[in-house]
Design a protein around this nucleic acid. Sequence first.
DNA 1: ATTATATGTGAATATCTATTCAACTGTCAA
DNA 2: TTGACAGTTGAATAGATATTCACATATAAT
Lengths: 120, 120
Amino acid sequence: MSRNEFICDCSVIHQDVVDRTIKNMAEEDTFNKLAEFFKILGDTTRVKILFALDQNEMCVCDIANVLGMSKSSISHQLGTLRRSGIVKCRKSGKEVFYMLDDNHVKEVFEIGVEHIEHKK
Amino acid sequence: MSRNEFICDCSVIHQDVVDRTIKNMAEEDTFNKLAEFFKILGDTTRVKILFALDQNEMCVCDIANVLGMSKSSISHQLGTLRRSGIVKCRKSGKEVFYMLDDNHVKEVFEIGVEHIEHKK
DNA sequence: ATTATATGTGAATATCTATTCAACTGTCAA
DNA sequence: TTGACAGTTGAATAGATATTCACATATAAT
């Protein structure tokens, strides 16, 4: 993508750096999906749910009890996580068991923890 | 933390799983900081800025030109990233050069990209 | 000194989103 | 069939936040 596609309120100071950086930028779509992925992880409730599901699959009621929140709010969040492909579920009678679907989440989590430990 | 501290609108179905999971949950503070960290990464503009700064340090004007956005909005976002300890800056005359401060960001990014590539 | 440029920032607006509430579906048991 | 329970879902509300705008600050050049 070229810088001429954009409208900006200032002049370019270091043309070479700007040109090179623009040339190396990823696709717009990649940035959007990346931000979307991190946005999903950027909520305390969802972080707790994923941390819990990392230990064992669980039904909605049990998750609600672990977090001390309503079934409805947990169900809404599980829907968000499912639509993002981060968790999946399995029905068993009246209950629905949720589990992690994406092995990257665990890795991202660990680095995230390293980050906040390092910043202490 | 004990489950009795919480108010929930449903009964516990699998008491053993709930007890064990609660016992293994991290500190409230840890979840908050973790979510806060990912929330910072969960914005397209900030993702682009970090991707650009991963290549070279840059001044505000250059970043604005690379992204095709106003200096003001970029400055606001850089302030957010700086307060989160993810980028740092260095003054040189009228210009302020920003660079990555946290080596974890790069790792998290790479796994994030793997994630979205895997989901295609 | 004056002007131009690079950056920072508070307030306002528009948009997004997490939770609650109320209703609903589906399943099991009596 | 009836009731109880697990889970889902749309609408509403309240809170968060990204960008714009206008102005402020700081530095360099004339």
